[in-house]
Design a protein around this nucleic acid. Sequence first.
DNA 1: GTCTATAGCGCGATAGAC
DNA 2: GTCTATCGCGCTATAGAC
Lengths: 214, 214
Amino acid sequence: MSPPTRSRLRAHPASLPPSAPSDGTRRRILETALQLFANRGYHDTSIRDLAKVLELQPSALYAHFSSKEHVLAELVRIGHEAHHDALQAALKSAGPEPAEQVRALVRAHTRTHALHPQLAVVVNEELYALTPELAAPAVLLRDKSAALLAEVIERGVAQRSFSPPHPRVAAAAISAMGVRLPYWYEPGSALDVDTLADLHAELALRMLGGSAAS
Amino acid sequence: MSPPTRSRLRAHPASLPPSAPSDGTRRRILETALQLFANRGYHDTSIRDLAKVLELQPSALYAHFSSKEHVLAELVRIGHEAHHDALQAALKSAGPEPAEQVRALVRAHTRTHALHPQLAVVVNEELYALTPELAAPAVLLRDKSAALLAEVIERGVAQRSFSPPHPRVAAAAISAMGVRLPYWYEPGSALDVDTLADLHAELALRMLGGSAAS
DNA sequence: GTCTATAGCGCGATAGAC
DNA sequence: GTCTATCGCGCTATAGAC
């Protein structure tokens, strides 16, 4: 760990989604690693830093994870699965119209990033610290999640509900709103998560144009 | 440098803006560091890695920079200044209407991120690897750049040209489009930079609503 | 599953010759 | 301004006792 640095995130403390392991020490390690990786980065956080916060000896961590990289890989896996599951659930409960489906997807995307900002940051900034083998499952989930939005947009365009100037660029812009959230949004602020999710959905529909924008 | 990893960026090779130093070795160091920091991250790139690519001995770098951190600081400075200068020039040449000014700002924001993707990534992901003292000038420029967009939006809202659901959230969404560009945009693709800049401007105006959206 | 101790290596940076 | 050589330290990970 290098010397006096500002922390990357506004949010505190690190929150894992419910799907994470409930087992005691393994979960504590993941939560602590999440906090440190999010604030300082994976490569700037040492096994010794992690052990110190956990009040364990460095060697004790190896009873729970076979390497520092496997701790990161588990966080990346949890993050991608939680995100993908949230998108799928949102889509499933959304009804058939593209506008309603976009609204549901964007709300879920935004909620995930706002409620688990550390996980979002680690997933997005540290994925490339993993060997391709360990990163592969996450990359696959990433592509599937992107496809969920892309397909809804395509269908909306096909049936003239949407008229974006460029569907792929619009999809990237919609995704970007959520991905950048952890860097400026303050979870305890006047703007609550549900309102924010609605605002993002509204902005997404405006970008997509057509009759759906309110 | 850790073992087999995918690179963070699609773009190749690293491009510095014209404002960067033209001097020989110093510039070569900056260009090479930019490429390595963008692809592997600052903390995962060693002085030895840098020297190897440059075909120099590690100690030779210290004739040009007093530390590895100062190399990063210089890149961060160059990146922030080029970005801020581009926004200011765009605004200056834009005429008085808020819609025209937003279009100019977004076009400049997008062009900067598309034309210098490595610099954008390093500036955004590695700023927090700097001590607060070295990061301070960049943070100041960042705030000034954000204010340029925020003020134009505010004026547009005040004179009823814009009707965003929430000006601050819309500003963040507009900025996010550009910031995320380096992670998906392929500079040599069918979609050229100017078209992309126009598309982003169009999306921004749609989000801001009002009479200005085309 | 935690401890003490340490192996083995790579790191950033410096000394001093040329 | 580049070289050779190296200091001193922190790193990931392992060995082996309890």
